[in-house]
Design a protein around this nucleic acid. Structure first.
Length: 527
RNA sequence: GCGGGCGUAGUGUAGUCUGGUAUCACCGAGGCUUCCCAAGCCUCUAACCCGGGUUCGAAUCCCGGCGCCCGCACCA
C-alpha cells in the first residue's frame, strides 16, 4: 500500500482521520478512532515491555504546559525563536542570524537592520521584513496578562525537571531510567503527510541517567544482536552490537543497548527487518543538546521514516536545569565520600560569654577557624579555646551531573509504518499481518449465520468473554467471508466461528488470519 | 511561507474545458437467500471543502480562505 491507500484504510476502518474534519480540518492534528486507540494502546504496551520493564524504568506523567524559565533553561526558547527572512524574488527562507556573520545572539533590531542591507544569496533579490518564528506553542497562565507558558515541545523536559524527585524515589542510586508516554507539541511550518509530521504527537520516551565512567554495560540479552547501521563515516558490516561498540562505530554502550532494544521492539511490531535501519546523525544535523544520535528509520512508500531517535544528551539538560533553578541536579559519586573533620563555632557558648559582642566574634571566625584562634573584642584580643567549638565530622562525596541516553519514539509515525509494512494482499484478500501482541481485538466472534440459534450462542460467548475482560469483536452482519474480510483488514489475529456443530458438542472453529486455516476446539479452551 | 497540481457520498471515482443539482464501484444499513472466506437478488442511507463574485442559473467560470499532494525552504 502507498500513503494514500493506508490513509483510506485508516479512515474507513476507524483507525485515524484528520482532526476537525467538519471545520475543514487543521493541518498537523489527528483524531484516532476505535481501532486506532486500540492499536496505539497495544503498541504502547509492547513498548513498555521492551523498555520500561526491560530496563527497570520509573514511569512518570508530567505536565504538558511549562513555564518560560524551564524552556529558557532547556534551550528550546532560544533555539526555536528564530528570525526568518524571505527573499522577495525567489521566496527562499533564511534564518536571519545565519545571514549575519559574527557574534552569536544579536538583538532583534540589530539583526533586522543588518539583514535589510543584505541580498539573497541565491538570486540577489531583496529581502522582505524579517518575522519572528517560534516552534513552541505559547499560552498565558492565569488572568490578566498572566505569565507566559508553553506547550512542551518534547516530553523529555518533564523528566529532566523531575530528576531530583526521581533520584530520591530511586533512593539516590544511579543508574536510573525514567520513562514517559505523552503528547508533545511543535508548531511546524508545514505539517504534511498525516501521522508522519504532526503539530501534536505522542512520544514514547525513556531517559537513562548514569554517572560518566559508569555507563551501564550492554545487557546480555542484547549484546549478540546484529542490526543494520548507516554510520556517518564508512559503513558497518554485520557485526554484533557489542563488537560495534568495541570498534567505536557506536560511541556509547548504552546507545548501543537502546539501538538493539529498539530493533527488537520495532521488528516485534511486525516491521520487517529488511525495512529497518539505524542512521547516524552528522554534526550539523544534531539537536542542540546532543552529542551522538542515531535515528531508527523504516522504509515506506514515502521514503525512510524516522520512528525513533536514540541520542546521547550528555549532561546538557541536567546541568542547564541545575544552573537555572539553583537546585541540586547532581548526584553523588559513590566511593568518593571523604570524611571531613571540622570545627564549628559553638554559638551557644560564644553567645553566653560575649553577649552583645557575639555577632562580631562570629563574623571574625572565617571558615576553618579552630580552637586557639584569636579574635578582637572591644579592643582586646581573646584566644578562643576548645569550649567555644564543636567537633563535627561529615562525609562529602563528589557531586557530578549525570549523563543521559535517550531513546525517543514517535508513536504516530511508528503506527503508520506498522500499518504500511504489515499490509498483505493476495488476490481480493487484504489483511494487516499484525503480530499477535498488536491485534486490536483478542478475536472475532461470529455465528456462521445469524439464525437457527447460532447468533444467540455466539452472543452468549461474546458476553461471557466481555464479562471476563477479554476484548473481543462481535459481528453477525453479512456472509461469513465478508466478516472475516472486515476483521482481516484491521488485523484481528483470529476468528471464532459458531456453527451447527457448536450446538451439538460445544466446539467452535478458530480461524487464523494469516493462513485462513481453521481448527475445531472446545469453547472452554478459547479464552 | 512561496511555486505548481488538486479538493465530488465513509472510500475510490465520472462529470469541470463547452454553466442547467451529479456517474459508477466498493463500504455501510435493512431484507431475502446462503452450512466457512468480500457470492447473488431487492431496498435504503449518503457528496459537489468553506465564503464571496459573475450569471436567469455555478460542482463547472473568477476572487479569497481552509485542506491535501509535489517541489523549495524549515524540521531539537
Amino acid at each position: 500500500m502507498n500513503f494514500q491507500e493506508v490513509m483510506a484504510l485508516a479512515k474507513r476502518r476507524g483507525i485515524l482521520q484528520p482532526a476537525y474534519e467538519p471545520y475543514g480540518g487543521v493541518a498537523g492534528f489527528l483524531d484516532y478512532g476505535p481501532v486506532g486507540v486500540r492499536l496505539r494502546r497495544k503498541i504502547t504496551e509492547l513498548w513498555r515491555k521492551h523498555f520500561v520493564l526491560g530496563f527497570g524504568a520509573l514511569e512518570i506523567d508530567s505536565a504538558l504546559i511549562g513555564p518560560e524559565p524551564l524552556f529558557r533553561a532547556s534551550g528550546h526558547l532560544s533555539e526555536f525563536d528564530d528570525l526568518l527572512v524571505e527573499c522577495l524574488e525567489c521566496n527562499k527562507l533564511y534564518r536571519a542570524d545565519l545571514l549575519v556573520e559574527g557574534e552569536g545572539t544579536l538583538d532583534r533590531r540589530i539583526l533586522a537592520d543588518a539583514v535589510a542591507g543584505k541580498k539573497c544569496e541565491s538570486c540577489g533579490g531583496k529581502f522582505d521584513v524579517p518575522r519572528p518564528f517560534n516552534l513552541m506553542f505559547s499560552t498565558s497562565l492565569g488572568a490578566g496578562r498572566g505569565t507566559p507558558g508553553y506547550l512542551r515541545p518534547e516530553t523529555a523536559q518533564g523528566i529532566f525537571q523531575a530528576f531530583p524527585w526521581l533520584l530520591r524515589q530511586n533512593r539516590g542510586k544511579l543508574p536510573l531510567a525514567a520513562a514517559q508516554v505523552g503528547r508533545a507539541f511543535r508548531n511546524e511550518i508545514a505539517p504534511r503527510q498525516g501521522p508522519l509530521r504532526l503539530r501534536e504527537f505522542t512520544q514514547l520516551e525513556l531517559e537513562h541517567f548514569f554517572l560518566p565512567g559508569a555507563e551501564p554495560e550492554i545487557p546480555k540479552r542484547l549484546a549478540k544482536m546484529e542490526v543494520r547501521l548507516v554510520p556517518v563515516n564508512g559503513s558497518a558490516g554485520t557485526e554484533t552490537i557489542a563488537d560495534l561498540v568495541k570498534e567505536d562505530v557506536i560511541g556509547s554502550s548504552l546507545v548501543a543497548s537502546y539501538i538493539a532494544c529498539a530493533w527488537k521492539f520495532i521488528t516485534a511490531c511486525g516491521v520487517p527487518a529488511g525495512k529497518l535501519r539505524f542512521r547516524q546523525h552528522g554534526k550539523h544535523e544534531m539537536a542542540h543538546y546532543s552529542s551522538e544520535c542515531w535515528d531508527g528509520e523504516v522504509e515506506t512508500s514515502t521514503g525512510w521514516v524516522e520512528v525513533v531517535g536514540i541520542a546521547h544528551r550528555s549532561d546538557y539538560d541536567l546541568k542547564a536545569h541545575g544552573k537555572a533553578s539553583s537546585r541540586e541536579f547532581r548526584a553523588p559519586v559513590p566511593g568518593t565520600g571523604k570524611k571531613i573533620n571540622t570545627w564549628l563555632p559553638d554559638k551557644g557558648a560564644i553567645g553566653q560569654k560575649f553577649k552583645s559582642e557575639a555577632a562580631s566574634v562570629l563574623e571574625q571566625l572565617v571558615e576553618g577557624a579552630a580552637p586557639g584562634v584569636e579574635v578582637g573584642v572591644s579592643g582586646t584580643t581573646h584566644a578562643l579555646g576548645r569550649e567555644y567549638f564543636r567537633r563535627v565530622s561529615a562525609t562529602e562525596p563528589e557531586m557530578i551531573y549525570p549523563h543521559v541516553v535517550e531513546p525517543s519514539f514517535g508513536l504516530d509515525r511508528l503506527l503508520y509504518c506498522i500499518l504500511e509494512t504489515t499490509w498483505r494482499s493476495e488476490g481480493d484478500r487484504g489483511w494487516l499481518a499484525l503480530p499477535e501482541m498488536l491485534s486490536p481485538y483478542y478475536m472475532l466472534i461470529a455465528p456462521l449465520m445469524a439464525r437457527d440459534g447460532l447468533d444467540e450462542k455466539a452472543r452468549e460467548i461474546h458476553a461471557a468473554a466481555m464479562f471476563d475482560g477479554v476484548d473481543v469483536f462481535y459481528d453477525e452482519k453479512g456472509s461469513i467471508g465478508r466478516r472475516y474480510a472486515r476483521a482481516d483488514e484491521i488485523g484481528i489475529s483470529r476468528a471464532c466461528t459458531v456453527d451447527y456443530q457448536t450446538l451439538e458438542d460445544k466446539t467452535v472453529t478458530i480461524r487464523d488470519r494469516d493462513s485462513t486455516e481453521q481448527q475445531r476446539v472446545s469453547i472452554d479452551s478459547i479464552f
